[in-house]
Design a protein around this nucleic acid. Structure first.
Lengths: 243, 243
DNA sequence: CGTTTCGTTGAAGAGTGTCAAGGCCAGTGG
DNA sequence: CCACTGGCCTTGACACTCTTCAACGAAACG
């Protein structure tokens, strides 16, 4: 754990060529501005499956833009209960929790081999001060995270197991689609226990509900492989009209 | 509803004299910097109990710093389920949800007569661009909100009714204390249903658990009036060691 | 002072959790 | 190549927490 299996690739980054730029960057940047950004994103970092990008308590220094791979973030209470607060995929920004106290308050762990762009925070602040577009974009990203978490609170606070799972699947579907993958067929990178933790359910409940969905012809499940057969059916369930 | 009972008080604001400045402002500002801030916070706004400061869908223009009073924020799903996402008291900043899409995504409603400082967002951006201390403070406030919501997710996702209520009471207690009020004796500004919505419980459950706490000598409850008798007992419950 | 909203409490039931057993699959070493 | 192992997933039976439904009492409001 002391010499983590994380290799720092001191590669020259090219945001302008990155196929994630629509997700990652503000729109309407001049070429010159993109160049300044590329200076900002100095390095990349690889994180092997199972390793942490950062852990609660780590000094906060950088934000990370996921380039490829899949991660989860978890918080832990003093008595050891763990809660998954989110799953992250390509184009998403992680590490925002660290700004408030200059130390991270959650663990972020790769669920498959992952590569991130490292964005040193003090340099981001610097560049942002003279680039209103970037600053504004950054504020919007943070705000979007707050809004996303409101949605999770709604889910955890007022939805039943089936509704939670249906919403979860549709959310994944939509995010995969936005990245050019199939919206109907994908692989769950996380275990049932991790899904359950995120949704406030036990892994057995997750398993049971997925089986029920399959039986009702809403999805096909085979271990981690999922195919959405009837998205409208899932939407019905999310809106509380399922059966 | 169309002509809301909100009066705009075009008063000169004086952050330098405000007794909330420790909560609201970054530390270590020069007098001149505080003056620039006071220009920023141009007006105040009163919101009567029951009225909304803003509603989901409203165009986002300003952030609001609560000067005095008490508010709740709620999100609503398409099918009409409502979830309280937070309660806000003096010194806290609300409206951050609006930045992401330039429209608010939640309702924020006063639970008692409330007064807020209006902070026009475009002017905040302006001033922040040349005031690193302020910008950094603002980022920390947003990040803190993200961390707070992680805590709520932990609570909703992995705690029992008694643990949720105990955590809720201790959180209120601590926030009242930080504002110079009693940490042991306070008035709940929200209804049981609102507490329940926030905690993912039904109002009857909230009522029952509070009664049980009272019976166990942890608190005194009389309608909205609460006195914390045994805070350590509540802490035990939060950490899953209750009974 | 009536009306309405809010809070408390009880009884019964639904929805998840818990516990336990077994199956599937990938990786490992013989 | 095959058996073995350990992690992950599925399914059943049962327990328990929380919700639902209902009735009543207390406080707030016009």
């Amino acid at each position: 754990m002391n010499a983590p299996a994380i290799s720092i690739a001191n590669l020259r980054v090219a945001c302008s060529n990155c196929n994630l730029r629509e997700l990652c960057l503000p729109v309407g940047l001049s070429l010159k501005e993109v160049e300044r950004l590329e200076e900002l994103v100095a390095t990349r970092k690889r994180v092997k499956r199972g390793d942490a990008l950062f852990r609660a308590g780590d000094r906060f220094e950088s934000l990370y833009a996921v380039r490829l791979g899949f991660l989860k973030s978890t918080v832990m209470s003093q008595d050891g209960r763990e809660q998954v607060t989110g799953f992250h995929m390509a184009g998403e920004l992680v590490g925002l929790d660290g700004i408030s106290t200059e130390a991270h308050s959650c663990d972020t762990v790769a669920l498959e081999d992952t590569e991130v762009c490292v964005i040193p925070y003090d340099r981001l602040e610097e560049v942002a001060s003279s680039m209103p577009v970037l600053r504004n974009h950054f504020h919007k990203v943070m705000s979007r995270e707050i809004v996303r978490e409101h949605g999770v609170m709604l889910l955890l606070g007022s939805m039943h197991a089936e509704e939670r799972l249906a919403a979860f699947l549709l959310n994944l579907s939509q995010r995969f689609e936005a990245r050019g993958y199939s919206r109907t067929e994908f692989v769950l990178r996380m275990t049932r226990a991790e899904i359950g933790s995120f949704l406030g359910l036990k892994l057995e409940t997750v398993s049971r509900v997925l089986s029920r969905f399959a039986q009702d012809g809403l999805i096909d499940v085979n271990q981690k492989h999922v195919r959405i057969v009837n998205p409208d059916g899932l939407r019905m369930i999310v809106s509380g009209q399922g059966t």
